[in-house]
C-alpha cells in the first residue's frame, strides 16, 4: 500500500540535503594577489553580481570561510602564507585556482613564481584565462556547486577517499 504524501513533503537523503545547503551558501575567502583579484572584485560588483549564486559573502578571515579562491600568482614569499590560510580553514572546504598564474604559473616562468599552487595545496577547480572573465569564475562556482551536490557527504567522507589523497601535481608525477 502506497503511502500518501502531501505535496509539501519531500523525501531525500540526509547527505544530499546537507550538500544542497552547503553548495548554496559558499563563503569565499578571496586570496587575491594580483590582476585576477580585480576581476574577482568585478565578479562581486553590480554587473555580474555573484550574489545570484549564493557565494557573495566574502570573508577575509579563513575561519569563517569554506571556499578559498586563489586569484593571481603566488610567489615564494607568499606560498607559506597561502598554506597557512588553507590549514586555518575548517572542513568542509574547497579551493578554486583562478587564472593561469595560480594554476600553472602562467607567463611567469621565473625564479620566484610558484608554478601552480596545486603543487603544494589541494585544488578542486581550475579556471583558465589570464585573467578569466567574471562569467568564467561564475561558471567555476556553478561547477563546484554541482560537484558538492554530486559527491558531498554529511561527514565529509568524500575528502578521505583515496583518490582525493593525491592533491598535488608533485605527488602524482
Amino acid at each position: 500500500m502506497a503511502l500518501e504524501l502531501p505535496d509539501n513533503v519531500v523525501i531525500t537523503k540526509l547527505d544530499e540535503m546537507v550538500s544542497w545547503c552547503r553548495k548554496n551558501s559558499l563563503w569565499p575567502m578571496p586570496f587575491a594577489t594580483a590582476c585576477c583579484g580585480i576581476e574577482l572584485m568585478a565578479t562581486g560588483a553590480s554587473r555580474h553580481d555573484l550574489a545570484r549564486f549564493g557565494a557573495e559573502v566574502f570573508r577575509f578571515s579563513p575561519r569563517q570561510c569554506d571556499l578559498l579562491i586563489v586569484a593571481g600568482r603566488v610567489v615564494m614569499k607568499m606560498l607559506p602564507v597561502l598554506q597557512r590560510i588553507w590549514q586555518q580553514m575548517h572542513e568542509p572546504k574547497w579551493c578554486i585556482s583562478m587564472g593561469a598564474c595560480a594554476s600553472t604559473g602562467g607567463v611567469f616562468d621565473t625564479y620566484s613564481v610558484v608554478q601552480g599552487i596545486d603543487r603544494f595545496i589541494p585544488v578542486d577547480m581550475y579556471v583558465p584565462g589570464c585573467p578569466p572573465r567574471p562569467e568564467q569564475l561564475i561558471q567555476a562556482i556553478i561547477d563546484l556547486q554541482a560537484k558538492i551536490q554530486r559527491e558531498g557527504t554529511m561527514y565529509g567522507r568524500e575528502f578521505t577517499r583515496p583518490e582525493r589523497q593525491l592533491p598535488s601535481r608533485a605527488l602524482r608525477q
Partner: peptide
C-alpha cells in the same frame, strides 16, 4: 649569471594534502 627559472628555490616547499588539511 643567474638563470631565469632560478635554481629550484621555487619548488622547495612542503606539500599539504587533503588529509593534513
Amino acid at each position: 649569471d643567474y638563470p631565469l627559472q632560478g635554481r629550484g628555490e621555487r619548488h622547495n616547499f612542503p606539500v599539504i594534502t587533503r588529509a593534513e588539511g
